[in-house]
Write a protein that binds this DNA or RNA. Structure first.
Lengths: 232, 232
DNA sequence: GTCTATAGTCCGATAGAC
DNA sequence: GTCTATCGGACTATAGAC
């Protein structure tokens, strides 16, 4: 509702999700992209993620992104026809980053190893890509209008499969008898908190995940809480 | 940076934090507020929280808030001189709600009772005031420009005092030997997740906290994870 | 206190030269 | 592909009647 009002014309295009385009023409209608083109698009998307993650869609101006990417505003719009399209493509990037750790949760490991690896991957993501994490968080808080379809399909399929793994471990007596969905939410929430609420964490502890020791301490404490609880 | 550009003049006023003004004049310079005035201000702030929580500062227009509160735009601006002032006052409201549960964490209870009560209070807050939770989350993600001073003073004092309680329980062998700051973060993250990431929770489970059974299940599972862990 | 009208600004998007 | 210039809509805030 806020978004439509921005633009006079209502382009419904989230743009083609096409990515990883190779140099030689693939058997599609799409034109191949030159090297400058790819480099510029990448620069723009990086700048866009930084800006969108701090100010949201409406709070960000094309000018700010262009300035960050060291391009002029019309030049940026040469690569991405509309602000909407740029937002959608940036979010696609973020989504790929966000989804990848979950795929590695291995059913053949024992639960402690598998969850330990998963928590570490999520924490590394919070450390290396806090902007991506924040942009994703904002999109969800704002109602997930743009990514809802991905959540309903790709993420839903992934969580369903991983919940089956967790349920199996439960039946085997290796894991507490709890609903896997809530366990996944808990892991997402706790690990992303250090990126999304960085300002608050910084205010209360004076540290961020860029502090190596703090990072280790946080990761270790999260594992201990989730694996063995705090009540003695 | 995004915010200043909105308004031509830069009013630095976050407005008086004065609140709970009684009918009769208090020994201050402030004028007393009439009944209509109070009712209208309350209506406006409620509407503002809903709108800001979904679209952020720039994504929200005064018109939208006015419409929600069933007032005209200039009439709203009669009560709050600028959009900035309205944002700051709404955030004050939200902060009071957000801070209250932590104050009740009772050092004289045993840890399980005290933390159980705290988690319940936080979850009830996520259920009853998801908008407030989301507005707070957005403000933090955007860098906490407006609330940083409160985080650094009021919240810091509160967490410091509560961390002492947690440390005492640790020394007494009632609680695992972990840093209380990370435990507090974990509880905040997990409980607020159901409000802030409602769209994602809904997508993956088909439910929200408004579903009574789901609420009970979520609260219970969170307690079990944090109290006793998931590895068996 | 509440309204209509409007001033003044910002920003997304395009035109068109190079 | 990249730039300068600019159009036109949307938004905050104020003026001023009632």
């Amino acid at each position: 509702m806020a978004r439509e009002k921005t633009s006079p014309r209502n382009k419904t295009s989230p743009g083609p999700t096409h990515k990883g385009g190779t140099r030689r023409r693939s058997p599609q209608i799409q034109k191949p992209k030159s090297r400058i083109q790819q480099a510029n698009e990448r620069k723009i998307i990086d700048a866009a993620i930084k800006q969108f993650s701090r100010h949201g869609f409406r709070g960000t101006t094309i000018d700010q992104i262009a300035h960050r990417a060291k391009l002029s505003k019309p030049n940026l719009l040469y690569y991405f026809k509309t602000k909407e399209a740029l937002y959608a493509q940036s979010l696609n990037y973020v989504l790929d980053i966000w989804l990848s750790p979950l795929e590695t949760l291995n059913p053949d490991d024992d639960p402690e190893t598998a969850l330990s690896n998963y928590i570490e991957k999520k924490m590394e993501l919070s450390r290396k890509h806090p902007d991506a994490s924040r942009m994703f968080a904002m999109e969800i808080i704002e109602g997930a209008k743009t990514v809802r379809s991905v959540l309903d399909t790709r993420l839903a399929a992934l969580t369903k499969s991983k919940r089956r793994v967790l349920a199996k471990w439960s039946r085997e007596g290796k894991l507490a008898r709890i609903d896997g969905a809530h366990l996944l939410f808990a892991i997402w929430a706790v690990t992303q908190h250090y990126a999304d609420f960085e300002a608050q964490v910084l205010s209360q502890t004076g540290k961020t995940l860029r502090d190596r020791q703090f990072f280790e301490e946080a990761t270790d404490t999260i594992k201990r809480i989730i694996f063995h609880g705090v009540i003695r």
